[in-house]
Simulated scan of single mutants.
Amino acid sequence: MKKKILIASFDMEVGGVERSLISLLENFDYEQYDIDLMLYRHQGDFMSLVPNSPNLLPELPLYSTFRKSIGEVIKEGYYMMGISRILAKVNTSLYQKINNLEEPGYYQMQAMWKYSLPILPRLNKEYDIAISYLWPHYFVADKVKAKKKIAWIHTDYSVVETDKKQDLKIWKKFDHIVAVSEACKSSFLKRYCELEHKTKVIENITSPVFIRKMSNENVDNIMQRDKRFKILTIARLSHAKGIDNAVKALKILIERGYKDVVWYIVGYGGDECQIKELITKYNLKDHFILLGKKINPYPYLKVCDLYVQPSRYEGKAVTVTEAKILGRPILITNYSTAHSQIEKGFDGDICDLSIDGIVAGIEHLYDSKDVRERFKENLRNLDFSSKVELINLYELLKLT
């Protein structure tokens, strides 16, 4: 008899976690498993890429409110949810002031779920295995009945601020915790050492054939027509991704005479206004170009001269793996999990996590065409298939 599995996540907006989820769903063995997919909100440009094989459960209205504003939630008549969101916001503001937090987003998300939990409905169906694919994991922990529960980790826990005591209560409700890299696992266990016995690594499932096929899609590609030295970053416009530092680094490069350098950004996010203000302030409108959200970023990735990930922190950046699959020279900042993604000097370079570090890293690779070509040659000889990850996944599912 097939095992019944639930996989839960937020929505299918454009992002690395969502792309990895699609790859996971595409590669599942549906002859062995019946998969239900629970998305809290049936929204996002990647909805059309969700394969037909999993059964997409109906949207539950209360869960769809998490990515909406408090005003929208109250206007739609979900008054108790609105109150819980206000409580979470007030709690986060106080916590941020007391602890002088720079980035309270993770704490606020955690508080939203904590205060909303009593009024959220349960799923009636019982599963053999329930997988929570994206933090915070309250839904699978408290609202799903399953013989075994698995939670995924996609971020670097050494740099995010949460209520550790509250988080630990949720983690303890899972039988297994899956980190997407060894470095991601290590940073998690530094904070939650008591969970080592249930934590293991399964890297993101990727599909090189799909990525290469999509990179050949015919799009109106401004980058293809640009003859300058093209840097590309694919990321949310957020503090974590360091796009503000990228703008400041490019300003320095232009001042140093690298006037044929252009930096393109594929992505969207809450820091867009701030980024645009920086671009205007430094007079970089012709050199730092926001391309916005792209369902298919691969034609842009295929033609860049250098892929740069200027992040402040990452779990394991899906976009870096995708750049490797397409054979692009890569520069990433030295966030704590960087060495799990790049072998410095072999398939890319790692620079200091600072504006000056980004500048120095780009200067070096701009001036060293032979190094860029060596990276490309080395990448051609690497195997990016996910056979090992799939074996590890199925072995984990057998344990449940």
Rank of each mutant, 00 (worst) to 15 (best):
V209A: 13
R212K: 15
H137S: 04
C193F: 15
S207W: 01
L123P: 02
T206Q: 13
N100M: 10
D175F: 07
E161V: 14
E103D: 15
Y138T: 01
E194F: 14
Y106M: 08
K145I: 08
N100A: 12
I211A: 06
I98V: 15
K169W: 01
Y138P: 01
K185E: 09
V144H: 00
H154M: 10
A179D: 10
E102G: 07
G105R: 13
K213A: 13
D163V: 00
I211T: 07
K172H: 13
R191W: 14
N100L: 09
E161M: 08
R122T: 05
D175R: 04
Y192W: 14
K200C: 14
A146V: 06
I202N: 05
K148N: 13
K125M: 08
C184P: 10
I170P: 08
V160S: 04
W152K: 05
T155M: 12
E194C: 14
Y107C: 00
I98Q: 05
S116W: 00
K169I: 03
Y192V: 09
K172L: 14
V178R: 04
K213V: 03
A141H: 01
I119M: 14
A146I: 05
I150P: 08
I202V: 08
A111F: 05
Q110S: 00
K165P: 00
D167F: 10
